[in-house]
């Protein structure tokens, strides 16, 4: 083109227009993109607390304050005897119920050391739930040691699966943040939520164990296994966190296994010499009362355990278990 020859900058009108259009488009697109991705909330606080997950009450109306204390060395027998005093498992589990058994599978230790829920007890509970018509039984815990090893070495996985339950070993995605209304520690804290999807009944199954920091690890401390995240920092206020757990979790039933009580070196134990054959099965709907009695197996008083006192004050149950007129039966052999 002749224009070019006359134009000292060596650019034609057409080329100039094309370049200008490209430049304008680039400016417009980047300008719009910047506007689009701009953080409109940069001066707002990070994120308001989400309402998050909350545990419903699993307590069956009309069964409040039940407590049975059965002595005997055979877990299956004492459990059945205890439930018989309450009208059988059918009192608590209706046909179609979906039951979650919160076991204590904290440590990768064999069942003989009684640091974890006993597989006999787990399998018997699963069977009783299914016999009562439960549609599904889920067995879960978020252990301290390696989770898979815990469920297998404790014998819980095999016992539960053979009895027909589904074992859920938690994964990261199973936790959702929860906030306890009126709580100070459980605020936007990850809890084991997904296994509770569709669950209608909750049964806690825990052994009676010595625990240096809290005084005892029993039915209430067992709920600790529903906490995720860096739950260890709660040890700074162990009694408060157990109390908040007592407020947050209202189970259908707790089974506190004092067949072998871990008298010292708890909550891990590790030696048969840490155990004492106390041959007692505590079954009830009030975990605070169950723990208050469980403390006596350890030679302690409920009043020595601040978390029990706190749970009573918080309205989670009663420490004066005698007021519940517990049914005491002895099974032999």
């Amino acid at each position: 083109m002749n224009d070019t020859a006359q134009n000292p900058s060596g650019i034609s009108r057409r080329e100039f227009l094309v370049r200008a259009a490209k430049a304008a488009t680039t400016i417009a697109v980047s300008g719009y993109a910047a506007h689009w991705i701009r953080n409109r909330d940069e001066h707002q606080p990070a994120r308001a607390e989400e309402p998050g997950f909350s545990f419903p009450s699993f307590l069956v109306p009309g069964t409040e304050g039940r407590l049975s204390i059965i002595t005997g060395p055979n877990r299956r027998r004492t459990l059945n005897a205890a439930l018989a005093t309450m009208g059988g498992m059918g009192t608590f589990i209706q046909p179609g119920d979906r039951v979650l058994l919160k076991v204590n599978a904290a440590f990768a230790l064999p069942p003989s050391l009684s640091a974890t829920s006993h597989p006999d007890l787990v399998s018997e509970l699963v069977r009783l739930c299914l016999d009562a018509g439960a549609a599904r039984v889920v067995v879960t815990d978020y252990p301290i040691n390696d989770a898979t090893a815990c469920f297998h070495l404790t014998g819980i996985a095999r016992a539960a699966e053979q009895a027909g339950a589904q074992v859920v070993i938690p994964r990261e995605a199973d936790f959702r943040p929860a906030t306890l209304a009126g709580g100070r520690l459980i605020r936007n804290w990850p809890v084991l939520a997904r296994p509770f999807d569709g669950i209608t009944k909750l049964i806690g199954v825990a052994p009676v164990k010595d625990h240096n920091r809290s005084g005892a690890s029993m039915a209430l401390k067992n709920w600790y296994g529903l906490l995720g995240g860096r739950r260890n920092i709660f040890h700074q206020e162990i009694h408060e966190i157990i109390c908040e757990l007592a407020m947050m979790i209202r189970p259908t039933l707790v089974v506190l296994d004092g067949t072998e009580t871990m008298m010292r070196n708890g909550p891990t134990g590790g030696s048969l010499s840490d155990l004492k054959p106390t041959h007692t099965m505590i079954v009830g709907t009030d975990p605070v009362a169950a723990d208050a009695f469980g403390a006596t197996l350890l030679g302690r008083k409920a009043a020595d355990l601040p978390f029990i006192t706190k749970a009573v004050v918080a309205g989670a149950g009663t420490a004066n278990f005698e007021l519940l007129n517990p049914i005491r039966i002895s099974t032999n052999g």
């Binding site: 040691n145 625990h211 240096n212 920091r213 260890n232 700074q236 070196n265 891990t268 590790g270 030696s271």
Partner: peptide, 26 residues
């Protein structure tokens, strides 16, 4: 250590020590 340096109760280590008798005592 929280109980040693900052007067905060803790002893998670003692709780989790897996041997019997525990190698961590208080």
């Amino acid at each position: 250590c929280l109980p040693w340096a900052m007067d905060r109760p803790c002893i998670v280590c003692q709780e989790n020590c897996p041997v019997s008798p525990k190698a961590i005592f208080v």
